[in-house]
């Protein structure tokens, strides 16, 4: 009985390691135990195998086109489905796509992240406590809407909605390169795509930063309020410093989602393989994922390999972003938070 609070309090402390091993060692002798242990261990290892498998199979399929000279490959210079026509090699083909992926995700983050963090603050610190659960559920529902529905919505709602705004920005602020060029009449602009993309990444950023905001030690908040801080000053003094790394990683996870999101760009934006910062024209850079979705149906096998190679690059990029995000989260949860818990106990 005395061991229970100690293990619960320490979590991964040294006392905890002894008891489960001994129990496990005593009980594993039975056949049922062995089978169950084997099954669950196998499932855990299987996850690593699957992840490795994703990388390996993509590499096997992508390898022939990554190093090759595309101009000498007849399948890649095929004129009937010529989306790879005229590109000297893989890097020449993928670099505008990579640019488009990063540019579109950056725009989506720019539009979405502040709003998402605002929502998280609203739900965690402003909304009445009874309503907070329902409001959080509404935002989660936004995450459940299938991406193809957002694509349709972008086409019939966001495109016409942005029409007048596009004209306004172009005539009055056309001297800024972002709003320059000739306005796309159909409205299939990168701006429309980025706005839908921003809506799609809202829920993930909101839900993670909301969790972190709620974890702020209430003693810190109460101390700030007791010193006469207004609610915003309390948030600035107690909540935001505590949640900084959590906010960063939630934004990075949102970036990871934006990098891989296909439908918003594939359905809404008219694509071209170019480097362009203009937001309001018909000639927009497209993303790796959208390009795969658009071209895969008509691709021959070698072209499919080329598309898989671009997908491999997307995998690497989003893996790296997620890796950094999780690393920041992990560092935050083992670093400052553990330092805070004892001070909180001591003050009691």
């Amino acid at each position: 009985m005395t061991a229970t609070p100690a293990t619960a309090a320490n979590g991964g402390g040294p006392q905890n390691t002894g008891a489960p091993t001994r129990l496990a060692a005593m009980k594993v002798s039975k056949v049922g135990d062995r089978v169950f242990l084997g099954l669950s261990t196998g499932a855990a290892w299987l996850i690593m195998v699957i992840l490795a498998g994703v990388a390996i199979f993509l590499i096997i399929q992508a390898a022939p086109t990554i190093g090759a000279n595309w101009l000498q490959n007849t399948a890649l210079q095929d004129r009937t489905s010529g989306f790879t026509l005229g590109y000297a090699n893989f890097w020449a083909y993928v670099s505008p796509l990579l640019f488009g992926t990063i540019w579109a995700s950056f725009l989506a983050l720019l539009l979405g992240a502040p709003v998402a963090i605002g929502i998280a603050l609203f739900i965690s610190h402003y909304a009445p406590r009874r309503a907070a659960g329902i409001l959080g559920y509404l935002v989660d529902l936004l995450a459940a809407v299938p991406s193809v529905v957002f694509g349709l919505w972008g086409i019939v709602v966001i495109r016409p909605f942005l029409g007048p705004l596009n004209d306004f920005l172009n005539t009055n602020f056309g001297w800024i390169p972002l709003f320059g060029g000739s306005v796309a009449q159909g409205g299939s602009t990168l701006l429309a795509g980025a706005i839908v993309l921003a809506v799609m990444i809202l829920p993930i950023i909101t839900s993670i930063s909301r969790e972190i905001f709620l974890q702020t030690p209430s003693l810190h908040e109460e101390a700030a309020l007791a010193l006469g801080a207004t609610r915003w000053e309390m948030i600035r003094l107690a909540v935001l410093p505590y949640a900084r790394s959590g906010i960063i990683s939630s934004v990075l996870l949102g970036l990871g989602r934006a990098l891989g999101e296909t439908m918003a760009i594939a359905m809404i934006v008219s694509p071209k393989l170019i480097f362009s910062f203009q937001l309001l024209t018909n000639d927009n850079p497209t993303t790796i994922a959208a390009n795969i979705a658009n071209q895969f149906g008509g691709a021959n096998l070698t072209q499919a390999n080329a598309l898989i190679a671009t997908g491999l690059l997307l995998f690497v990029v989003s893996f790296a972003v997620n890796f950094v995000a999780r690393w920041v989260v992990g560092r935050a949860s083992t670093g400052p938070r553990r330092r805070r818990i004892p001070t909180r106990k001591a003050s009691r």
């Binding site: 855990a44 996850i47 690593m48 699957i50 992840l51 498998g53 994703v54 199979f57 993509l58 096997i60 399929q61 996870l253 990871g256 989602r257 990098l259 891989g260 999101e261 296909t262 994922a289 795969i292 979705a293 499919a304 598309l307 898989i308 997908g311 491999l312 997307l314 995998f315 989003s318 893996f319 972003v321 997620n322 890796f323 995000a325 999780r326 992990g330």
Partner: peptide, 25 residues
């Protein structure tokens, strides 16, 4: 620790990459 970390990273795999993996497989 590795499995926990990989599961977290795996939630961020772009869905289209999963499709390409199945196609390649």
């Amino acid at each position: 620790r590795i499995v926990t970390f990989l599961v977290d990273v795996m939630t961020g795999i772009p869905s289209i990459v999963a499709g390409l993996f199945a196609f390649a497989l």
